[in-house]
Design a protein around this nucleic acid. Structure first.
Lengths: 353, 353
DNA sequence: TACATTGCCTAAACCGGTTTGCTAAACCGG
DNA sequence: CCGGTTTAGCAAACCGGTTTAGGCAATGTA
């Protein structure tokens, strides 16, 4: 049986209070009493029970990272890894632990109900997510990342639209006219593509750059899928089977971009000679893909860091104080996966055989 | 103020017990009483306090993943991402949450002391880690992953030695004689390289294959560094500056292998024409690096899954029952980063200019 | 009619700590 | 030697739930 504070008190011949003091405010005890209590505790192998501590102190010293997707889906997404790293950095430097909150049996509300955290960083939650309102009512301080701006909630974002625009401009300048967009699919409970979500914002960026060049991007040229290598290659395959023959692919995640490159290669085409590909995120491995990936850089780690820092600076009572919104910059990084558009569609067709 | 069970009880005109029943064992209440209590709770916005619940039920429904490294270091390691994914899969299917436990101010014991988990999966803990004994005494059920076998502790491992051996054999068959090993550095508190740790086991594998070919691998040809792209390139640079001119690099992590390939490229050499590189792990992106990485595959996700499953099947009292050890297989995956050794050392020297 | 059973609900103890309010002894200057 | 201040430590209340051990009617049984 794990020893409790009462065991230590009995063994040391003092009150529970004294034992508590010995650990938390030793200066309220005579030095030798404190030392004796610590000794007894040590030999008994006593450690204050963290849960009991949380209950009385009314804080957990943990921040939660809430995602609408199952953890088993997102952990190997390098973007999420980098984001978590940033969160961890800021949390650790303030002595906070990190807890991941993901849907329990599909319910985020239930998950948040059983989470023992002092605050929550929510990433990728769509505003039309049916549970946001309930989550907000939970009364936990919260920072939204990569969501649409919500009333009363602080947020951290990046300039998705500008980033996407620069990607599309780059391709337009290279002479491309036939585009395919691979979007990140919102998790199940969402009904569709919110124009204010990340996917919507990036799409707007792509479209505005293309429009300026007189190109209109039909909805049939926008495919969505999970943000993974597999998701990217499946989406490209589907587009191909639908008869689309793009010379340029704009993926909203580097993982999808890599998947697209693979699918393109499987079709016997070359990147960037036959098809150009540009990603989004600029993950650590982007410079080392084959070919090196042209992509929109976003400060992913910094995003995590700032989110947690902002969260920890928030007042305890969420109602108080104005929400703070912060937007970080993005920029295009040109590497080897983009090149001039092939001379004619014919060439592409020939290359296919 | 967050409503408590007492508030609901008062409002509904029943006892706290009744409210508790309404949520946990409604069949002990008349249907309409239960319904009325739930209604009141709903309008008050009551949710049972998770910490209080943990305290009375003596369980947290969470499993901890313990790493000797700071989270801000490992989250963007794709290997760890995949491992976590496996853990998350097994945890989620049993309704458990996942918590990450990393050193607090350098102390793992302190970290484990404040962790509210029902069990721990410890990954990469060296047996000579000064705190293992204390951790064990914490009395939490625990499964060790990628550690040396410890008395009384269940464990999940992969066949590191065989994997490493197959990598070295492959290179020997390609005619290589000059090797460089890039090892994974154990985290700070460890004193040195334990022969029983992962690094030690893999090293043994490399050496045994080389020895069979009459090649001895001196300690000066084994460099260690952090398991990251940067760690790999720095380690290779150091070796090069020390005058080493290997034709084959064996890295104990894919991230390091990628870093080495980059450093090799920076020196004006080509992979695999001038230098062959083989990694370890087979991360998702390994097929998509430039060139595609030859590497030792290990079932990383499965390792996480099995670790959590084993943990959850363990008896509550750690002393009871025989510890279970399980070893998963590894195998070499040959891709494009390895080739026949260059004809002579001279060629390499020429290529340098 | 007396007695056991069942259904519904409660008071109080408990989980393992922290915090508040207080007391008794030691200490202090005058 | 006295009143006032520290110092050292304690008992009890508290955090917010769950669980145990009944209590009280209504129902079933002899």
């Amino acid at each position: 049986m794990r020893p409790t504070i009462a065991d230590v008190a009995r063994e040391a011949g003092v009150s529970k209070t004294a034992v508590s003091f010995a650990f938390n405010t030793p200066q309220r005890l005579s030095p030798d009493t404190a030392a004796r209590i610590r000794d007894v505790a040590e030999t008994l192998g006593y450690r204050p029970h963290p849960v009991a501590r949380m209950l009385t102190q009314r804080r957990t010293m943990a921040v939660g990272i809430l995602t609408p997707q199952a953890l088993s889906v997102i952990f190997s997404n390098p973007f999420f890894g980098a984001f978590s790293e940033g969160c961890a950095l800021a949390a650790e430097e303030s002595g906070y632990a990190l807890q991941f909150i993901s849907p329990v049996h599909g319910s985020l509300v239930r998950a948040i109900g059983r989470a023992t955290v002092d605050g929550v960083v929510a990433i990728g939650l769509q505003d039309d997510h049916p549970e946001v309102e309930q989550i907000r009512r939970a009364g936990v301080p919260m920072v939204m990342v990569d969501s649409s701006v919500m009333a009363g909630m602080s947020s951290i974002d990046v300039d998705d639209e500008a980033g996407a625009r620069s990607a599309a401009e780059h391709l337009v300048q290279l002479g491309h006219r036939e585009f395919l967009v691979l979007g990140v699919e919102p998790p199940p409970p969402a009904t569709g593509l919110s124009p204010d979500g990340v996917t919507g914002r990036r799409l707007r960026g792509y479209r505005s750059a293309l429009a300026r060049a007189g190109i209109s991007l039909g909805d049939d040229r926008v495919l969505v899928g999970p943000a993974s290598v597999l998701g990217g290659s499946i989406a490209f395959e589907r587009a191909w089977e639908d008869g689309l023959r793009p010379t340029a692919v704009m993926a909203m995640s580097d993982a999808m971009a890599v998947g697209a490159m693979r699918a393109i290669g499987d079709r016997g085409l070359g990147v960037p000679d036959d098809v150009s590909v540009v990603g989004f995120d600029d993950i650590d491995l982007a410079p080392h893909t084959n070919p090196p990936l042209t992509t929109v850089h976003q400060p992913t780690r910094q995003k995590g860091e700032e989110a947690v820092r902002l969260l920890l600076s928030l007042p305890i009572r969420p109602e108080q104080g104005e929400p703070i919104h912060r937007q970080l910059a993005t920029h295009l990084v040109v590497r080897g996966s983009t090149a001039r558009a092939p001379q004619s569609r014919l060439e592409v067709a020939v290359a296919m055989d």
